[in-house]
Computed example of a mutant assay.
Amino acid sequence: MVERRGAVVELWRYPVSSLRGERINEAPLDARGVLHDRSWSLIDETGSVAAPETERRWRFVPDMLSRTGQTGVEISTDGTAWLTIPSDAANAAASKRAGFPVMFRPLAPMMKATSAEQASPRYDRGHLHILTTASLRALAHLLPPESLVDVRRFRPNIVIDMDGAEPGFPDRQLIGRRLRIGDALVAVNEPCERCSFTALAQGNLPFAKEVLHAIARHGGGGFGVLARVIEAAPIRQGDAVSLI
């Protein structure tokens, strides 16, 4: 049985892990999610991947930006000058911002790097991350306005406006179901567990530890869901979403 449940209202891609990403109108999919999503990393001289949620020295990273340009992935430390990676110029700009030597390196598709030219991801990134507007509204009602509950804190790939969503965090209704999103088919398999990254300051969003505390109290630590791609097809803003 196919049940129409809403539509795609936002699409996001994060070309460099932990950097801010780009809002896009169309998200091409492959077997592991949005194409070019979290395909690069920022590392130090020892090869350690940036971890702003656990190490204070990396707290500058969510203020940097990444996007997919005409010549490949680009980064910016200030939102004005954009530099293609990999390049000495991009490494130099990021190192100046960090205050210690850093460089950009492709992320391996699996938890273990397959060559010296790749960095090992800190978590399994083979998931498509989905969030609903209903859950965002529910979380905002639990917190003071100054917490700024904003989609950028949670780094989803797809934001869905669900019809007839239940109170609370209705994303969990989707676990164990398949979603037809435009021409793509995905299987929702688990909640998206949250860490302190959601509380970090980034851009005009302030540090807000109460965001993570509210998720822990009311969402069991999870906020949004993770899905795997069954049938890959481009997803576009406005595409219908149906439960199967």
Rank of each mutant, 00 (worst) to 15 (best):
L65W: 10
P170I: 01
L83H: 04
R194P: 08
L185G: 01
G224F: 02
S66M: 07
S120L: 06
S39Q: 08
E190V: 11
L139I: 04
V188W: 12
R32Q: 10
I43L: 13
I244K: 00
V9P: 00
T71P: 00
L19Y: 03
R137N: 05
I43S: 14
S196Q: 08
D239E: 00
G47T: 06
H127T: 11
S120A: 14
A50F: 04
A187G: 04
A27M: 11
L205V: 08
G203E: 01
R178T: 09
R97W: 03
A90D: 00
D171S: 05
R228F: 06
V211S: 05
M111I: 13
S48H: 12
D37W: 05
D63V: 01
A138H: 01
F100M: 02
T68K: 06
R67K: 13
F169N: 01
S17K: 15
L136K: 02
G221C: 11
L42R: 14
R13S: 13
K112N: 02
L174D: 04
S48T: 14
D183L: 15
D44M: 09
G21Y: 10
L65R: 12
E53Q: 14
G79A: 03
T68Y: 10
A240F: 07
D37F: 05
T71F: 01
A227I: 12
A94T: 09
G182T: 13
R97C: 11
L83S: 02
F154N: 09
A116R: 13
R236K: 15
T46R: 15
R38H: 00
